[in-house]
Design a protein around this nucleic acid. Structure first.
Lengths: 192, 192
DNA sequence: TTCTCTACTAGACACTGTCAAGTATGAATA
DNA sequence: TATTCATACTTGACAGTGTCTAGTAGAGAA
């Protein structure tokens, strides 16, 4: 009955927390509930995560690692593909994404290992922008374009995930078509 | 000492809650804390809001009303101005904005009066898009463009407010210049 | 006077995160 | 083999939380 000791409790708690974040949001995650789900005492998770913020930090690190992997993998496919990759990651990893983007749950700068993964994702996007703009482009210009691309992808992702206005866009027949459409618009704004 | 009875307790609780949301995030808002700040018993706020979600609903309604006002006012100035208005609203009303965009705190469809205000804001943007596209434009095209504009504005707003990657964009000299730049890029993507 | 409505207060309950202290188990060391 | 020690837990307690229930002071209407 007690599977906590067979496969790692740490992994089990993490999976439970991500599942709760995906279904009901990160705020519903409770130390005592995840302990209960894992079949251990209410204090057992503290040994692996320190405190509640520690769980969120672990989810963030894992999430940013997955996001960076996805974005780096799409680099060769161009700007629009990177934008799509960002949105699809958010939809496919709802639990992770919701936690990652809430730095009130755990401030990223307190957890350097999570920050490293976030940097990987950002740098991949930033590099692609400079490649497109060319070596001689101004730094501010590259920053502005990066901010623009990130805003589009992040905005669409959060609107699709938790946006109060999502249902208004429901009349768009295919949600993947919308994502592709938005990504294409965004990427074409760089070259113009 | 007890100013709760002189000016309305409802207003006092709301202001305290918005202030806490702006400084520390909505999750820190506690029924008992806002009651304490207002100098009343821990049950007094329940008479005005029903429960905790009721406070968030009231903040959402007020926030969407202010947002709709701001967006409608900027209609005559064109698409880029509407986009800027959205972002500036988020920065100027941090407390409201954070609550509005968290429908896990209170789901908007349960509070029709708040939903009406959200619709006002959306419709203003949507109308402007159709005006630019022309009467004969397809509905899906208008939806896609509206989704795009909303994504850009919302993405930039949330990244500036709570984004873990905000500091990366810090090298952009003037943040208002960034907002104007992004808004202009976004609006020009419609006519192209 | 009595009745009713509003705007509260007071007490209790289950639940939460977390501190402190204890325990079983396995490996390393003397 | 006996002892030490770290790991991975358990148990118990505490303050703080949202919210249910039950009361109360006061104003206006009948």
């Amino acid at each position: 009955m007690n599977s906590a000791k067979t496969d790692g409790l740490r992994r089990q708690v993490l999976d439970a927390a991500v599942a709760i974040a995906a279904s009901s949001g990160p705020d519903v995650i409770s130390m005592r509930e995840v302990a209960r789900l894992a079949g251990v005492s209410h204090q057992a998770p503290y040994h692996h995560f320190g405190d509640r913020a520690g769980i969120f930090a672990a989810i963030s690190e894992e999430g940013f690692r997955l996001l960076a992997d996805a974005i780096e993998a799409s680099t060769t496919l161009g700007m629009a593909a990177m934008c799509e990759a960002y949105v699809h990651f958010a939809l496919a990893h709802k639990g992770h994404f919701r936690v990652m983007m809430r730095n009130d749950l755990c401030s990223l700068e307190d957890y350097p290992s999570a920050l490293i993964q976030a940097d990987r994702a950002f740098n991949a996007l930033r590099n692609e922008v400079t490649v497109i703009l060319g070596e001689d482009s101004h730094e501010d210009e590259a920053n502005a374009h990066t901010a623009y691309m990130w805003s589009v992808a992040h905005g669409l992702a959060t609107l699709l995930l938790d946006g109060p206005l999502l249902k208004k866009l429901g009349s768009v027949a295919d949600i993947n078509a919308l994502i592709r459409n938005v990504a294409r618009k965004a990427s074409s704004s760089i070259t113009v």
